[in-house]
């Protein structure tokens, strides 16, 4: 009885389930009971204005910030308050806001750093490195260059590829399009769609709501520390309130 129940649980549960999550800095609460779920194989997006708590939520998800209460369950594993190392090992990789590359290290070394925790041998890691160069050919040309010398778009590609090098099951990207040229954003979105078709689950945090709603299947709208709205992107695109608040059309 119990066994079959757990089986149903595993199939029916979303890949990432965040429930009633509270977190903040010191005495200042930022997240007031966030509810979020990401299903296997989908691209989910998290949108919201400045100060809504998006980055705080991601810092909590990656273990850089300890939550005050609530739960984070990933593939049946409770990750609330876990160390960044364990979260990464569980299969969640993050591409941080502002890229955060190791600017004085070569592109190749940056990518290899992404595989820091992996123990599956140089050969598999080398194959994955080739896959990254296939996904973003410009990185192959720049592989021996210091990451700090790349353009903004190339740096974002490098950061996404570095995140992928840990062979995650869920890739979380903070501010995918921030400060990038529209053509580069398109290129990144194409790459993410391709990865998604190959089975990767993705959670994107975006300020550019139009881009996010176009890329993702499901959206979560955050406002003042809570998820105020969620649903299929298509539905949200036609929601008058969203159109007025975030898309600038009435």
């Amino acid at each position: 009885m119990r066994g079959s129940f757990r089986h149903i649980w595993a199939v029916a549960m979303p890949m990432l389930l965040v429930k009633d999550l509270h977190a903040g800095y010191g005495d200042v609460p930022v997240l007031w009971g966030v509810e979020l779920e990401v299903d296997r194989g989908e691209i989910a997006c998290l949108v919201g204005s400045n100060g809504a708590g998006k980055t705080t939520l991601l810092r909590t998800l990656s273990g850089l910030l300890a939550p005050k209460s609530g739960s984070i369950v990933f593939d049946g594993e409770n990750l609330r308050g876990a160390e960044p190392e364990r979260i990464l090992a569980a299969g969640i990789a993050q591409v941080p806001e502002g890229r955060r590359l190791f600017s004085a290290m070569s592109v190749r070394d940056n990518l290899l750093m992404g595989a820091h925790l992996r123990r599956d041998g140089a050969e598999t890691i080398g194959r994955d490195l080739e896959r990254m160069y296939g996904l973003f050919p410009i990185l192959r040309d720049r592989q021996n260059q210091d990451a700090g010398t790349l353009s903004g778009g190339e740096q974002q590609m490098c950061a996404v590829a570095r995140g992928l090098m840990s062979a995650p099951r869920l890739l979380v990207i903070d501010e995918l399009s921030l400060g990038l040229a529209p053509a580069v954003v398109d290129q990144l979105c194409d790459a993410l769609r391709l990865l998604n078709r190959e089975g990767l689950t993705i959670l994107v945090v975006e300020q550019d709501v139009a881009t996010a709603l176009e890329l993702a299947h499901r959206a979560f709208v955050m406002d003042t520390g809570r998820v105020t709205r969620s649903g299929p992107c298509e539905a949200l695109r036609n929601d008058p309130a969203i159109r007025e608040a975030y898309l600038g059309v009435i």
């Binding site: 990656s62 941080p96 955060r100 290290m105 750093m113 820091h116 925790l117």
Partner: peptide
Amino acid sequence: GFGLRCIRQNESAADMLGVN
């Protein structure tokens, strides 16, 4: 040594990539 260089350049990124 590799990990320390990463920490010098960007500690939170190193942390996020699983460097203890």
